[in-house]
Simulated scan of single mutants.
Amino acid sequence: MAKNKQVLFASRPHGWVQESNFKIVEAEIPALKEGEILVKNLYLSLDPYMRGRMSTAKSYASGMELNDVMIGGTVGVVVDSKNPDFKADDHVLGYLGWQEYGISNGKGLNKVNVSERVPASSYLGVLGMPGLTAWVGLIGIGKPQAGETVVVSAASGAVGSVVGQLAKAHGCRAVGIAGGKAKCDYVVNELGFDACVDYKAGHLAEDLTAATPDGIDVNFENVGGEIMDTVFTRLNPFARMPLCGFVSQYNSTEPYGIKNFGALLGSRVKLQGFIVGEHTDLWPQAMQELSQLVAAGKLKYRESVADGLDNAPKAFIGMLKGENFGKQLVKIS
């Protein structure tokens, strides 16, 4: 049996994550026990939430222990099974972490249908946790109505790109916020957003005002910090704000001090933080709509793919810095 290459969590970062916070090792693959499945991972998902799991700070999920395999979503193929629910060559989606092979007892492992139109990697992005997050936050919490204006930060990323396209599918004006002209051009010209604000251009408030002449009815927040603070000033009465993430703050040692928080009261805004795993009742409806849109070619996505586990730490750091374009993946084999 081949060795199993793994990326371990070696040390806790202080501020920005460093490649030295990881350790790459090779381990033996243990023999399967009754009820277990051996999966060869094809792709690994890299996501901002992983940064929070590297910390000991109080959160909705416990932090990782040192020398554990880094946590992460994977899609792979079954190579051996002693579980009657899975057989060799099944494609499966799970959380087997940063490693070439993973062993599962079947809990949390789901079969997926892979085809030319719906490749394996899509189950880690548009049809995986990012896509579900986008749907649950926008449709389940934001409840957009036709004609309203929806704004989403990190608009070219795995979650934000789906949010904007869903907003358009539901008859809304979709405005993205992204970093750099290339990302904004992609969001408007390829994804079909109505407008995109380049926060790196240096005049965020003015550009956001121009892009949202009728104010903002739904703000899907991925970034936090100054961007979120600026959005507060454009929220319409009774706006809804699904709070998904604070990627601008994950590596900061100094929290951003919100200046415009009082706007939420004045506009009677509904702000709700959410974790997609706590809304599994909405997943079937979400997957039905997302799958139909992907199969029809109406939900577009882009992937940034790093080659090999050796490059996973570098790709993860780049993703936290916004260097990826679309969903950040690692192609394992």
Rank of each mutant, 00 (worst) to 15 (best):
V17T: 12
D47T: 04
G76Y: 07
D68A: 15
S11E: 12
L8H: 07
I71M: 15
K33H: 11
I103L: 10
S104H: 03
G97T: 07
R117V: 14
H14T: 11
L42Y: 07
N113P: 06
L46C: 08
Q99G: 09
A2N: 12
I71C: 08
D89L: 13
M54L: 12
V92T: 06
V7N: 10
A27V: 14
Y43I: 11
M64W: 12
V78N: 04
L8F: 02
N83A: 09
P13Y: 03
G72H: 04
R12S: 03
V118P: 02
K3Y: 00
K87S: 12
R117P: 00
I24L: 14
L124Y: 08
D80Q: 15
S45F: 06
M50C: 03
V69A: 10
K3E: 12
S115C: 09
E19K: 11
W98I: 10
G52A: 06
K33E: 14
M50L: 15
A57N: 09
P48I: 10
I24Q: 14
R12P: 00
G72R: 05
K87C: 09
L38F: 12
K107S: 11
L44N: 06
G97E: 05
R12E: 00
E28C: 01
Y95C: 11
A2K: 14
L93E: 03
I103S: 02
K111S: 02
V79I: 15
G15A: 04
L132H: 06
L42S: 13
K58W: 03
M129L: 15
L93A: 12
L93S: 12
D90L: 10
V39I: 14
I103T: 03
H91Y: 15
L96Y: 07
L124G: 10
G125E: 01
I71L: 15
L8K: 13
S11N: 09
A10W: 04
M1N: 05
W98D: 02
G15S: 01
N21L: 05
N4S: 09
A88N: 14
G73R: 08
G128K: 07
S104G: 04
Y49G: 11
K33I: 01
G97P: 09
S122M: 13
S81W: 03
F22N: 01
V78P: 09
F9W: 04
A120G: 06
N67V: 03
D89F: 09
G131K: 11
Q99P: 04
K3G: 13
E34V: 06
